[in-house]
Simulated assay, not measured.
Amino acid sequence: MDFVKQGPAAKYSHEGDEPINVNMAFGEQISFGQRSADVVARIVGSWAFIIFQSIALLIWMAANIFLAYQYETNPTYFNAWDPYPFILLNLLLSFEAAYTGPIIMMSQNRQNAKDRLAAELDFEVNKKSEEEIKVIMDHLVYQDKLILKIIEKQEITK
């Protein structure tokens, strides 16, 4: 059976770079500012924060409306610190938005960079997998040819 020795053997070596864990790669090089931005984004982007802030705003407005009403009926009563239209509240919310917006964008930019690295690594793995599959398919085609030759020889000898 000399035809067995003539065919190509599977020529693939699975040597190369070890897969990289993107989370560990980014976790090792994260700075204090990036870590802080992630914490702020995690907190501000949660339902707990939205509920807490909504309750705080309602309490602020209710207290100021109550104090303004009490002051109107009894001038010796404590006056509201931010009567309607709640200008101080508006200023505080604008201040909060002015600072949290860029911080959240910093966190998103870092996440985008992490996603780009993950996509690049996925592409490398896909290329390597395609090469491995091609080698396997070529070897299967070669095995099919060998099997057909063996069947032919058996039919001839019968």
Rank of each mutant, 00 (worst) to 15 (best):
I43A: 08
T73Q: 13
S13Y: 09
D17S: 11
Y71A: 13
K158L: 12
L58M: 15
H14S: 14
L92Y: 15
D38C: 03
N21I: 08
F32E: 13
P83R: 03
V22H: 00
D17T: 10
I150S: 10
D38P: 00
T100R: 01
K128D: 14
N79Q: 12
Y84K: 08
E152N: 08
A25L: 15
I87Q: 12
E132Q: 10
I133G: 05
E72F: 11
A80H: 02
L91S: 10
I156D: 07
M105F: 09
W47D: 15
K158A: 07
H14E: 10
T157A: 14
S94R: 09
I156G: 00
V44H: 03
Q108M: 08
W81F: 15
G16W: 01
M137Q: 14
P19Q: 13
D122N: 12
T76M: 13
N21H: 01
S129P: 00
L93Q: 11
A41N: 10
A97Y: 04
L117E: 02
G45S: 05
P8Y: 11
V141F: 11
Y99S: 05
L89D: 00
D138I: 03
D138F: 05
D2P: 00
I43T: 09
V39H: 01
Q111H: 07
D138Y: 04
A119L: 10
I51M: 11
M105Y: 07
F78H: 12
V40I: 08
K149G: 00
